[in-house]
Amino acid sequence: MDKLGQEWVSAAVDGEVEGQAMADLAADKGSHDKWRNYHMIGDAMRGELPDTINLDLSARIAQAIDDEPAIVAPNIQVTAKAEVDKPRGNVVPLFKQFGQYAIAASVALVAVIGVQNYQQQGPEQEPMSVLSTRPLVGTASPVSLQTGPVQQVQSGNSNEQVYEQRRRLNTYIQDHMLQQRLNSGVALDNSADIMPEHQH
């Protein structure tokens, strides 16, 4: 590639070369690197370079085109194999994965993450507590007891007591949730549960 040739490539990059000349350039493989480099220099000067530059792009595209028939053939094999496997892999593993365990009865749907006691102004009003809960996608682990800010309004309560209170609340809520599951098959007990003599 002589100096004239280099100028020529440079001109082609800037779009100043006729169609026929472009075809000649395309045939000259030695110029391809320069073509790419000039483009990159131009991009750099205009500040249009991407964050990562793949210097080998044109070579890789050419490679990919060369390899194409070789890539297509194994692909077909792979999909054919997947088709064969599909009916077997569809449903069974889902159940197999869980279905063979023994009995357990632990449940945790909600964990208490913080108790906030909002003290009302008037002395006649009961303090109203609002419990923040979040549904847990696991068991209510002690982690939940350590996270989340605790607003402590009641005086004299140590942090430990607050944690203990929350832990106890958690166990009650968990048990309530578990009972929902255990009791749903129970028929109603129709014996008189209301003692008439104490009727309000």
């Binding site: 507590s129 549904p135 203990e164």
Partner: peptide, 27 residues
């Protein structure tokens, strides 16, 4: 609606008298 009633030995750390969770569950 399902309601659970528990009776237990009083603890050293009393539970709040009244609580409302944001899921609608009250205690």
């Amino acid at each position: 609606v399902n309601v659970s009633v528990y009776v237990a030995r009083a603890s050293e750390t009393p539970l709040p008298e009244e609580l409302i969770t944001r899921s609608g569950l009250s205690l």
